[in-house]
Design a protein around this nucleic acid. Structure first.
Length: 594
RNA sequence: UGCGGGGUGGAGCAGUGGCAGCUCGUUGGGCUCAUAACCCAAAGGUCAGUGGUUCGAAUCCACUCCCCGCUACCA
């Protein structure tokens, strides 16, 4: 009775690098959750990709004198490289710039239209003659018609703080090239969220007993306070997915509308790449499948309100239009365990001011597991948290190294040295031994329950607490003392301790996959716990996109207690983690804001 | 101003009606297998303030004082 679980992870926008806030907000919790379910033997797929379209990408391309395609490719490849280094093992990390995604998105659009949830509306927008394109409100500056402030932006005035109607700006100019734009009429499609509101509310109410309060506040709470209204889902732009309607050439689907559809299209692409093209239906046409959406708090309305609205609105027409299948509804999200934000040294992370700890930069000096440990221990599950270098150092040295790394090292090295590199043969286990093993083995229940509820901080804490228990056990049995007078007693203690750390290894593996794998080898196992991350280039009519995949063939890990065999050949151990020097705190702080 | 979050021992947090807990740090002791790691013990809080509800409040209500977000395609 394996469960079908879809792990849907936020799509990084392809115009900037990834920092620790992004990692702890969505990518890391998703990976931990997914690794756990893999060990557990569930049918889990973790999908995401680069959000490739939209105006910011085109603006950046213009500024750098290159193409939007090149900009997106550059960041996309950087993401894939980072995810490999950080051990973020997506079943598929693709992109929105694929033929498959275009077709899926257009099918969703058409299904919504068939069901009567789209309407069109004409409006005036600023148009840049020099660039021959419409300007998003953000990219128009002018004098505020309320307070007279001269550098007001189209959407909001920084002088008086009022939200503005961009078309009323006085002396408008393009923020991109300074030219004077003119008002021009344009027509767009709107998603009729007002009409979908009753179904969206019902969807949310059915889930409010177990959703996080921060997510409910910004979805159900928001709707109750102010009604939903239609949102434009197309734009005058050529870098994106064309509106699949005749006469609408030169217009594209708005990125917020099509990027979320990636959760569906990526599952479909994953199936195709696996040579089992209908497999996605086990997640998407299966009412018992559970979809978990790992995102940051900025994305809550899109995932908890609008995306369910899109799925509900597409209804059975999606299956019909896309796959010729009747009477199938798309599976709605089961949970949206959105995280809050992580600040940095007390201030909000800001990429443009370099107030950030960048993923690539961090991993050029430190290992991935300490990063994953700190980001999990400090994950903003309930409220904003803070990355503090002093705190990072202390948690690394006093918790990860001292409690867990040292435990593994002291047990392994003692065993290796005194029993000729093999797991010692124990006597019959004593009550003390049974006790510690029972305690550790109960972790498969308690840590598992916490991970399933996406309480990852607590789950990690419980795993670490078990490591402390084993340290205590060693202090009581004192095998270094036993061995002097009764080697068999020492063998029993060390065997018990080895079995305990073997189990804890598995309990911590979702969080610390690299060191778990190393420890797994030291314990003498030949097959790895997890599969491999691989990349591959996929060609279609839009060009080529590189994808990151997960190959589970070699994986042998199981979410179950150790059954370590006496006599098993150990490998010569070495410490799992490095202790860090106090001086890195100042070094790292001085890099910030530079 | 509007909306939202938060103020708990030195630090970071848990705790939504019933003797105030956890991790780290500090101090003292133990051990010596281990990356000066590990184990034990102790000190340390009028749970922001005031008033109220209650047999009983960190926990509910009212008011006050601070801090921080959001209202920006900056995650």
């Amino acid at each position: 009775m394996a469960e079908y679980i879809l792990v849907a992870v936020a799509w990084p926008y392809a115009n900037s690098e990834i920092h620790v806030g992004n990692l702890t907000g969505s990518y890391l919790p998703a990976d931990i959750f997914t690794r756990y379910h893999r060990l557990k033997g569930n049918q889990v797929i973790m999908v995401s990709g680069s959000d490739s379209h939209g105006t910011p990408v085109t603006v950046r391309a213009d500024a750098e004198g290159t193409t939007p395609y090149a900009v997106y490719q550059k960041y996309h490849h950087s993401f894939i490289e980072l995810f490999q280094k950080a051990g973020l093992a997506y079943d598929l990390f693709t992109s929105t710039h694929t033929d498959n995604h275009f077709r899926v998105s257009q099918a969703i659009f058409l299904a919504l239209q068939k069901n009567g949830y789209l309407y069109t509306q004409k409006e005036k927008q600023w148009f840049s003659k020099s660039q021959n394109r419409f300007l998003p409100d953000r990219y128009v500056e002018g004098t505020c018609y309320i307070c007279g402030y001269e550098n007001a932006r189209g959407d909001q005035c920084d002088g008086c703080g009022n939200l503005l109607d961009a078309t009323q700006l006085i002396n408008p100019r393009s923020k991109i090239d300074g030219s004077v734009p003119e008002l021009k009429e344009t027509e767009h499609f709107y998603l009729d969220l007002g009409k979908l509101q009753p179904q969206i509310v019902a969807f949310l109410e059915a889930r409010q007993s177990y959703w996080r309060p921060n997510v409910l506040r910004q979805s159900l709470g928001q709707i109750q306070a102010e009604k939903l209204h239609g949102r434009p889902i197309t734009r005058d732009l050529d870098w994106g997915i064309p509106v699949p309607i005749e006469g609408w050439e030169g217009k594209c689907l708005y990125v917020w509308f099509e990027a979320v559809i990636g959760y569906l299209s990526a599952a479909i692409e994953w199936s195709q790449l696996n040579g089992d093209p209908d497999a996605w239906q086990m997640w998407w046409f299966n009412p018992n499948a559970k979809g978990y959406y790992f995102i940051g708090k900025d994305n809550i309305p899109f995932h908890a309100v609008i995306w369910p609205g899109q799925l509900i609105g597409a209804g059975e027409w999606f299956g019909k239009l896309f796959a010729g299948i009747d009477n199938k509804l798309l599976t709605l999200p089961y949970d949206v365990p959105a995280n809050e934000f992580m600040n940095l040294e007390g201030k909000k992370i800001s990429g443009s001011r370099n107030w950030a700890v960048w993923g690539h930069d961090f991993l050029s000096r430190y290992d991935p597991d300490p990063l994953r440990y700190y980001l999990t221990a400090n994950m903003p599950e309930n409220r904003d948290s803070d990355w503090d270098w002093q705190d990072f150092l202390q948690r690394n040295n006093n918790e990860l190294v001292a409690t867990w790394g040292n435990l593994a090292n002291r047990v392994l090295s003692f065993a290796f040295r005194n029993w000729a590199g093999r797991v010692p043969q124990p006597n019959e286990l004593r009550p003390l031994d049974h006790q510690i093993l029972a305690k550790v083995e109960d972790g498969f229940r308690s840590v598992g329950e916490n991970i399933e509820a996406v309480h990852l901080r607590t789950a990690l804490q419980e795993g670490m607490a078990l490591a402390s228990e084993v340290n205590r056990y060693l202090d009581e049995t004192a095998p270094w003392f036993e061995i002097k007078k009764d080697k068999e007693a020492a063998a029993t203690s060390i065997y018990t301790a080895l079995r305990a750390i073997d189990s804890i290894k598995t309990l911590l593996a979702p969080f610390l996959p690299f060191s778990a794998e190393t420890l797994h080898k030291y314990l003498g196992y030949n097959n790895p716990l997890f599969g491999e991350q691989t990349t591959q280039a996929v060609a279609d009519r839009l060009g080529e996109h590189r994808v990151l995949r997960y190959d589970s063939h070699s994986a042998s890990g199981k979410w179950s207690p150790s059954r370590l065999m006496p006599g098993q050949l150990l490998k010569e151990p070495a410490p799992l983690f490095r202790k860090l020097d106090e001086k890195i705190v100042e070094e790292e702080r001085s890099r910030l804001g530079g």
